[in-house]
Every structure is written in structure tokens, then in C-alpha cells.
């Protein structure tokens, strides 16, 4: 990744909330809205994991609702990790997670959001490739954790564009450490009453 990318990520991670968080959150009634976001990610760093695999571009779908404090999230992130060596198989990773975030309006149409995620990192190995020969388990799961810093800009009443930096840690014996940069688009909806009653 270029130094420009790293600088952009560092900038996103370094943004500190300068406004009153509680005031920002007090405007949001729990489960009143649903925000659906689509994000494209790419890795910035090069860790031991990247010696063996190239994650390429990944995609994420996220649903966020205002919670009793901050916001609650559920999301799914997917990467197709291409083998860099002939001795390891390609594999698809899916990160199913729940998260929590808090946001601060920075003035005008911009807001900063910080969040944490925890979930299951599911790996499905390509069983048709030679490195898989002799193995019986094509998939494995492990706990994954994440921390996100995001800058959003409002477009109209309900649309947002975002720049996102995320640090992701998968707690395999040899940890998978990834610093990712992403760009996303989201839209806010009013939660249907039946769904709001279910969630509350």
C-alpha cells in the first residue's frame, strides 16, 4: 500500500471527537432508524498473513441501529484470499460480527464514528487445489475482533458517504493482523414498527 494510503488511514484513526458525544446520541431514539451500509475494503499493511495470501478487495454489508447508548451493528465482511505460494490454498473468509459504535457531529454535514466489533471469522478453503490434498476439514472458524474509525459526509437527508479505517485481529494461534482502508455508502431508513418492537 502506498504511503498516501497509510497516511489516510492514520488520519482516520487519529480523528478525535471534539464535540459532546452524549448530546449527539441524545438525538437518537433506540431502534428508531436502520442504517444500511455497503463498504469496499483493501488491506494497507503487510503482516505475516500477507506473506502467504493476498486478500485483494473485500466487501462488507452492515446494518446499524441506534442503541440505548451509541449504536449497535451487525455485519458481514467477505474477502477472497488468493494464495501467493503454491503450497497454500486460496480461501474465502467471512467475518460475521456484531459491533457497537458512537458518533460525533463535527459540524456541518460531517460526523466521526468510532466502533468496535467482535464476531466469527469463518474460513473456507478451496478443496480443489493441490495444497488441500489429504485434508478433511474444508472450513474453520475463529474469533475475530475489530476497531473502526470512520468519517462520514451526509448527502441529502438520508445518504452518507464514508471513509473507513479498520484494524482487524483474528485470534488464530498465529494472529492475523490487518489494517484496512475502505470507502462506503449508506442510507438511513425508518425502522418498521414491528421490527422496532422486536428489537426493543
Amino acid at each position: 500500500m502506498t504511503s498516501l494510503g497509510r497516511a489516510a488511514a492514520a488520519g482516520l484513526l487519529a480523528v478525535a471527537p471534539g464535540a459532546d458525544i452524549s448530546a449527539a446520541q441524545s438525538r437518537r431514539v433506540p431502534f428508531e432508524t436502520l442504517e444500511v451500509a455497503i463498504t469496499v475494503f483493501t488491506d494497507l499493511n503487510h503482516s505475516r498473513f500477507h506473506d502467504f495470501w493476498d486478500p485483494g478487495l473485500g466487501f462488507e454489508a452492515l446494518v446499524e441501529v441506534p442503541f440505548y447508548f451509541g449504536a449497535a451493528q451487525v455485519g458481514l465482511q467477505q474477502f477472497q484470499n488468493a494464495a501467493r505460494l503454491s503450497t497454500v490454498p486460496d480461501f474465502r473468509s467471512r467475518f460475521f460480527y456484531t459491533g457497537w459504535s458512537a458518533d460525533v457531529w463535527l459540524g456541518g454535514k460531517a460526523r466521526w464514528t468510532g466502533g468496535i466489533q467482535a464476531g466469527v471469522f469463518h474460513m473456507r478453503f478451496d478443496a480443489d487445489t493441490a495444497p488441500f490434498a489429504g485434508r478433511s476439514e474444508p472450513s474453520e472458524t475463529e474469533l475475530g475482533l475489530g476497531a473502526t474509525s470512520m468519517l462520514q459526509y451526509r448527502l441529502g437527508d438520508r445518504w452518507y458517504v464514508a471513509g473507513i479505517a479498520r484494524y482487524q485481529l483474528v485470534l488464530t494461534d498465529q494472529r492475523i493482523r490487518r489494517l484496512m482502508l475502505g470507502a462506503g455508502l449508506s442510507r438511513q431508513f425508518t425502522t418498521p414498527p414491528w421490527l422496532r418492537a422486536f428489537l426493543d
Binding site: 502467504f52 478453503f125 475463529e142 494461534d173
Partner: peptide, 20 residues
Amino acid sequence: GSEIGDPGPFAFTSLATPNV
């Protein structure tokens, strides 16, 4: 439930450890 510390994709490398 699951304990952390599986080998994950590193099972295919020289860094492999036993499955958990």
C-alpha cells in the same frame, strides 16, 4: 463455544499448530 488459538489458514504453512 470455542477456544481461540486455532491454526486457521496457517495450518497449510510451516507455522501450523494443532487444531483447538
